Amino acid sequence: MDIISKLYEQHASGNAKVGVDLEAGETGEDVCKDVSAMNIWDLYVNKFFALKYAVDAACTVLRVDQTIMAKPAGGLTREQPAGMDED
């Protein structure tokens, strides 16, 4: 929570190129650094498509679950009395 709040503080002050340096650790060193100076470039397009495909996967799982739950369970049907075969 401390790292995220520091990152939000940096972005709110106008430093849009600040990111989190995970190798610095939580203690001692400053974990929020200028990522352009470190030659780290994370594209918005990568994040967009990752989120898009995650939502598509979740929707597919929910659709399959809805299809499975909509089908009646096996067992006797109402037209056929219990204990009677079709023969």
Rank of each mutant, 00 (worst) to 15 (best):
R63M: 12
V31N: 03
A50N: 09
L76K: 15
D21F: 08
V61F: 13
C32T: 03
C59A: 15
G28N: 03
P81V: 01
S36D: 15
F48N: 01
G28D: 00
G83H: 05
A82E: 14
E23H: 10
L76V: 15
N15W: 00
M38T: 06
A24S: 10
C59L: 12
D34C: 01
V45W: 09
Y53I: 04
V18G: 00
K17P: 05
N15D: 08
G19N: 03
L22H: 05
R78H: 11
E23C: 13
T27H: 12
A12Y: 01
I3S: 07
D56K: 13
V31P: 02
V35S: 03
G74Y: 02
S36H: 11
A24M: 10
F48K: 04
V31K: 01
A37E: 12
E86T: 14
Y8P: 02
K71C: 04
G19W: 00
I4P: 04
K33A: 07
G28Q: 02
A24D: 02
D56Q: 11
R63F: 15
V61I: 13
M1S: 10
W41Y: 15
V20E: 06
V45G: 11
S13G: 00
E29T: 08
A16T: 01
T27S: 11
Q10A: 11
Q10M: 15
D30M: 09
T77L: 12
R63I: 15
Q66M: 07
V20T: 00
I40M: 09
L62H: 08
L76E: 11
T60C: 13
M1E: 01
D56R: 11
